[in-house]
Design a protein around this nucleic acid. Structure first.
Ligand SMILES: [Mn+2]
Ligand SMILES: [Mn+2]
Ligand SMILES: [Mn+2]
Ligand SMILES: [Mn+2]
Lengths: 217, 217
DNA sequence: ATATAATTTTAGGCAAAACTAAAAATAATA
DNA sequence: TATTATTTTTAGTTTTGCCTAAAATTATAT
């Protein structure tokens, strides 16, 4: 079907265009994929020839419908494998990403549908992200960043924006996990840092932390 | 570590040298890997430069000790994944090979050691082949081909030589499975075909079948 | 022992996916 | 608007793994 590289590009475009209506820039893709802008341009031409993206020189790139579907299936595989690693193989949520990055490229419809069944059709991955079904549909939950909560407000942690091992380990260390209730005890208007309560514990968190935690009020 | 292609070559050499003391020929590798002899020569030079094989022009190729260890780890991964697919994901033994062929290249020590644990340290894969441990050690059982049995002798089916989907489906159709007891009712000396008894059923099998079934007396 | 056949290697090339350096286009600023 | 800065594309290479065709080597058969 598609090469490993093509699949990684489609997924990267999918993630980058999620929070904007603009086309995804060459530089943004180069950054995301840890490669050079000129390499990105090369690949965008190829993907465009295959009608997986809509690409106009200098104007950024958009996923076509077939490109989006392809990307969604890779995301589906990535997140199902992450669930498998955590639920069945004792991986912690900060260890799964790199392995899932490889597993997501295994080509077998039966493999992924049986894995889905084996895991009992999970709706979310270990980081709280939704898992698309075989048709590419997935739940969009109305979450907001912790930084948007006001003093005195309470919510449940439903996801993380930064899924780096560093950040996830920081959360582990402070007993902050998916599903935990978080209350904003105080908010410093000057820099956005917060004092929060989790599991009965008071904790001061920097603004960088508050913009990487998703909350459902 | 090593590329997908290098790993496939090492595994192919490992399998081809198993039943001979001679070096593995270029043509045999080309046949096994569905590629051209000239491509094989190219790769053998590269593997030789990396000291994974001992290669003398026109003289065939042998695995070095490090090459053998690498091959054994790929075989280990291949067979563990095959067990996973059959035991956990409802694959039949004729469906696992191609997917395992991809999964065997995923790079993660933790993944494979946890998978081994999750499967409860299986000793054999769905085709009866032994699974090397993390150190590359594996059981060698004293099996023989069904074709070597004489009239009246009995044994247990412990493995298959041909693991093609076609052959495995033939066995399924005739209720011949791993662990089954087989008795040689009659043997035609002219062409080696046999009349055997499996699960109380009489069955005539061609010589091609008898040389692809491993028996433990 | 020669001639013929089969196997294996070399030589030259191609496609994918990356790179560097230079040119072109767009965006930002004075 | 003109100039400068940034972004993006093009041009030209590199590496890996494969190919075909031709040459070299080894095996087989008169
Ligand atoms: Mn990937
Ligand atoms: Mn995730
Ligand atoms: Mn393989
Ligand atoms: Mn097997």
């Amino acid at each position: 079907m598609f090469s490993l590289s093509e699949e990684n590009y489609l997924k990267a475009i999918f993630h980058l265009q999620k929070h904007t209506t603009e086309g995804v820039s060459t530089n943004a893709l180069a950054e995301e994929l840890q490669t050079k802008a000129s390499s990105v341009t090369d690949m965008l031409k190829k993907l465009s020839d295959k009608d997986l993206v809509i690409y106009v020189k200098y104007q950024g790139v958009y996923l076509s419908e077939s490109g989006r579907q392809t990307a969604l299936q890779i995301v589906r595989k990535h997140r199902l494998w992450e669930v498998f690693l955590v639920e069945k193989l004792n991986f912690s949520w900060d260890e799964v990403h790199d392995v899932a990055e490889e597993l997501e490229h295994i080509k077998s419809d039966k493999l992924i549908s049986e894995l889905d069944k084996f895991l009992d059709y999970p709706q979310r991955d270990p980081h709280g992200d939704p898992i698309p079904d075989a048709e590419g549909n997935f739940q969009v939950s109305n979450k907001t960043l912790l930084s948007n909560l006001k003093k005195g407000e309470t919510g449940t942690l439903v996801g993380v924006k930064d899924t780096s091992s560093k950040f996830l380990k920081y959360l582990d260390k402070n007993n902050i996990a998916l599903g935990e209730t978080i209350k904003v005890l105080d908010k410093e208007e000057f820099d956005g840092s917060m004092q929060i309560k989790v599991r009965g514990e008071r904790l001061n968190v920097s603004p960088l932390v508050t913009v990487n935690i998703y909350i459902k009020p």
